[in-house]
């Protein structure tokens, strides 16, 4: 049935509609929202601001998309962000170069990701339980590493490194592009995407079909750790400090929301990376517009809740609900 196929196709762009609608409403109701300008060799404007602010959520959500497509969930992304930020700050405090700081953050992210993967794959714990535990432990570890204070990043190549604006765009936004491209290559260019989706859709069948299901799922958690660590680097370099107690708090909710608004079903079996980015941008557009309007935080929360509902309703046909 062509009409059905067209409808399904249209429904699969639901996250884009949400983004466009929020942007349009914001542009119409908020003065200067739609303006873009070229100043001192860089593009400035509310839309650029939205992109920059959405970076941490976009990074974490990219990693989460893989985990969720594999049938899992990772609640520890916010804590990993904090730990990586503290790690980078400590490394540069100790006189390390930007590369050392980046290495420390990435290493910590990979380590926690591997831990999560081991708990879920090797030990067989429910992902939500295992990553809930690591969310608490890793946040604690970040606080221990920070020694109870906000670790400043004073004299570091790290800030300059991520503060650079090649081609007039913020480096952090380019970092998102880089990670996205890497994931897309891994997903499409190699069999990894098919492996993740098959493992998430039906792990038993995937195993009998000769797929290395355990290794694939393990890899999704490791990559998610990596993505969250990169988010930590961005946050640390932006505020020139690492706050172990509040950095990345509730990031997991926003990131999961971005993934789900993007149309990746929570039951696994599909990974929609680009749609996840669109979902994250839609959320941030909303947040920025409400901030520019000067809405009280509780009104902003209410609007956010309603938008989530509307997004869910629009995306409904593509949810891929239980198959007969």
């Amino acid at each position: 049935m062509p009409s059905e196929r067209v409808r399904a196709k249209l429904a699969s762009f639901a996250p884009l509609y949400v983004l466009l609608a929020t942007w349009l409403v914001a542009a119409l109701t908020t003065p200067h929202f739609a303006e873009l300008a070229w100043r001192d060799g860089r593009v400035v404007g509310a839309s650029v601001d939205v992109c920059v602010r959405a970076v941490p959520v976009m990074l974490a959500a990219l990693g989460l998309t893989l985990v969720i497509a594999g049938g899992g969930i990772d609640l520890s992304v916010g804590s990993v962000l904090a730990l990586a930020a503290v790690g980078a700050a400590r490394a540069s405090e100790a006189g390390g170069s930007a590369a050392v700081a980046v290495g420390a953050a990435v290493g910590l992210g990979l380590l926690v990701g591997a831990l999560n993967g081991a708990l879920v794959v090797a030990l067989g714990l429910a992902p939500i339980v295992a990553t809930l535990a690591s969310m608490i432990v890793v946040r604690g570890a970040a606080q221990l590493a920070a020694g109870g204070v906000v670790v400043p990043i004073d004299r570091s190549g790290l800030v300059e490194f991520l503060g650079a604006r090649p081609a007039g765009l913020p480096a952090s936004v380019l970092l998102v592009g880089l990670l996205f491209a890497a994931f897309v290559v891994a997903k499409r260019g190699f069999a990894f995407g098919l492996y993740i989706e098959a493992s998430g859709d039906n792990p038993r069948a995937a195993r009998l079909a000769g797929l290395p299901v355990g290794a694939v799922l393990f890899a999704t958690y490791v990559l998610c750790g990596l993505a969250s660590a990169l988010a930590g680097l961005v946050v640390a370099s932006e505020i020139r400090a690492a706050d172990s107690a509040s950095a990345g708090l509730y990031l997991e909710l926003d990131a999961i929301l971005a993934v789900v608004i993007g149309g990746t079903p929570l039951s696994g079996g599909r990974a929609r990376l680009l749609a996840t980015l669109v979902g994250a941008l839609a959320l941030q557009t909303l947040a920025t517009a409400m901030l520019m309007h000067g809405l009280a935080p509780h009104v902003a929360l209410l609007v956010k809740g309603l938008v989530v509902l509307v997004a869910a309703a629009i995306a409904r046909p593509s949810w891929g609900r239980a198959i007969a």
Partner: peptide
Amino acid sequence: GAGWTRVAVGGLFL
């Protein structure tokens, strides 16, 4: 400290 408390809670739970 807050850090150790979290590590202990999460660790024992895990």
